[in-house]
Amino acid sequence: MPSLPPLPHVFPFRFVSRTLERSPEYSGKVSADWTSNGSLARVAFPATLLPEMLAQAALLIQGGDPEIGRTGFLAGISDFSIERTPMAGDRLVIEVRMAGQFASTVKFSGVIRRDDGQPVATGSITVKQGLTRPENPAT
């Protein structure tokens, strides 16, 4: 498979570590190592960031638009349920698959688990690719 452009997210808003598996049908597994000395680990990890973690994993697997790379934004969250909050030191595995795409709007479904198999969260997210922020009419 061809190499993909880098994910634009950086510390401290980078929640995924590396791709473990990736298929041409845009499904795969991504790891997220929750280090105990990371800034987000100093407080309880806000579970509301789990959909963003799923979105970052999804973009690692899907690769974004070949013309524009992995730019875009999390545009929707649906049927998302959180079983437990990740703790410092957890290693998470995110299984994600592309559920559908229409134009630049892409929906992914996924499951986040600890590496011992314990479920953390499951649900779907929708990503709007190619736009990083609304255009400012004043500029």
Partner: peptide
């Protein structure tokens, strides 16, 4: 909006077995 459009695409495939892959057609 565009997110609803994607949901309609998924619904059409599930309900009628019809795929909408072309944006212009959709």
């Amino acid at each position: 909006d565009s997110i609803d459009a994607l949901e309609l695409v998924l619904g059409l495939e599930k309900e009628f077995g019809i795929k909408v892959q072309d944006e212009e057609v959709g």
